[in-house]
Design a protein around this nucleic acid. Structure first.
Lengths: 259, 259
DNA sequence: ACGACTTCGCGTCATGCTGACTCGAAGTCC
DNA sequence: GGACTTCGAGTCAGCATGACGCGAAGTCGT
């Protein structure tokens, strides 16, 4: 007999990453700062954890796909439309939330800089620098740590940095994205060589004017290389067309399930 | 007002891998067969999908951790106790299961050969060869494909092959595990060099007698190297201590949630 | 007993990727 | 016009990996 609270509730949350708007209003001569990642958080308006910062998210409606729910709650709470959205992990410890049992399917997303400008930002939605995070509600700290690790490792074997940039960009801009994510300086020459060898870039033939030095070439990502052939290659990514299961099966053992 | 079916139901399933018991009763002189992976499946005894093969699993009890539920349902349905268990992905398309909405948190596990002997195996639980799988219920085919890809890619940067072997093993046995997973022959000499360089093996000093050739050394995995320092290294693995979230937050937007 | 046969275990060599570094090119700013 | 900046291409050394050779150490057959 199913009681109305005999099951865990399902929530969907998302960790969003964006580049900190270029070191504008920097007092130093514009160099040396490796740029940093920023994360939007929302303030909780209800118990438990009232008043503390948390990842944007919401309950999962019965008829909505997980991906859709992640994208929707993201849009509703922060106004952001992600360029990259992938499932991260499902957290479900019984004691994570005081009160009822909540299982959260967590996604992680990348948005590009321009998108950040349009984003909501009031007293209840705020962007935090990666290394200046407040104390978060529940165990969202650990989730954020995990998402950061995933972003760093995934950047090394996948080409997802473009999701943090605009349509066209210079080699230096792309390199600074990598530097911000990996948190270390990269040699410009070697970086160029590696990227060009990967074949994921297309030279637009145009150059960026207005700089106070030699005008750099503008590149664009090869769309045929981003969704690197849906089925097989993306190893840790979301499964291709796969997306559903139901294993309410206990053949050998009789369960208390209603028949 | 929460109706009793206003939410999706939560299930937990597991994809289990083991090595096919060494090419015993092989008619050929024992060589050339690269060994293969085997997967235990259970027959569904209820609708939907009655009679078809599916991944072992069950409903998630309110107070049980996800990992525990995966291990328990695994034990109950197949009698297996995994050596390695990690969350794979959460599948939750609204239309995956006819009838009600079911979201499944899927794990993947490795068990070693000896464990397979003790495993349940009747008309409702059966082991299938990786490339002789039956048609599965729901979209469990896609899930299995995804788990295989994860196993293959993870084997390359992590040392998890030992989970498919016994306590001690020869270099050739370990190599054959890699060959079975990666589905290609590996050079014995180069394999030895790479493994030894990784420093994850301990030479027991003993040798395996009874072979019809030079007796190979027996190795054991360095336990200090398997859980490669919990916190940071394991990139795509399960989060270290992290394990819980609750993002029932919709600050900017009023939701239908009960306050 | 002894040679054939097997795999083990250690070695070399060539190749390719990566980090460190150099240097001319091409703009802007003073 | 000269100083200054970054761009973009090149060289060189170190390290990991694939291909391959060969003596070592057992068992099996005659």
């Amino acid at each position: 007999m199913p009681q109305h609270d005999a099951h865990a509730r399902l929530a969907v949350s998302t960790v969003i990453f964006a580049l900190a708007p270029d070191q504008a209003d920097a007092d130093l001569p514009g160099r040396e700062r490796p740029a940093s990642l920023r994360v939007p958080l929302v303030r909780r308006l209800r118990e438990p954890g009232l008043g503390r910062w948390a990842l944007p998210g919401g309950w999962l409606p019965v008829h909505e796909a997980l991906d859709d729910a992640a994208a929707r709650t993201l849009r509703e709470t922060t106004g952001l439309v992600p360029r990259y959205l992938e499932q991260l992990y499902t957290f479900g410890d019984p004691d994570r939330s005081p009160g009822e049992r909540v299982v959260s399917v967590v996604y992680w997303a990348l948005v590009h800089s321009a998108e950040v400008e349009r984003a909501v930002s009031d007293e209840n939605v705020c962007w935090f620098d990666e290394d200046a995070l407040p104390e978060l509600a529940f165990d969202h700290d650990a989730i954020l740590d995990y998402a950061l690790r995933r972003l760093r490792t995934k950047l090394e074997y996948s080409r997802i940095a473009h999701a943090l940039l605009g349509e066209v960009f210079t080699m230096a801009e792309l390199r600074r994205v990598h530097e911000a994510v990996l948190r270390r300086r990269l040699d410009p020459a070697n970086f160029r060589r590696t990227i060009e060898a990967s074949g994921t870039l297309i030279d637009t033939g145009e150059r960026l004017a207005g700089t106070r030095h030699r005008p750099p070439a503008l590149y664009r990502f090869d769309p045929a290389h981003s969704p690197v052939a849906s089925p097989s290659p993306t190893p840790a990514g979301p499964p291709p067309a796969a997306s559903a299961t139901a294993s309410e099966t206990r053949p050998g053992t009789h369960s208390k399930d209603t028949p």
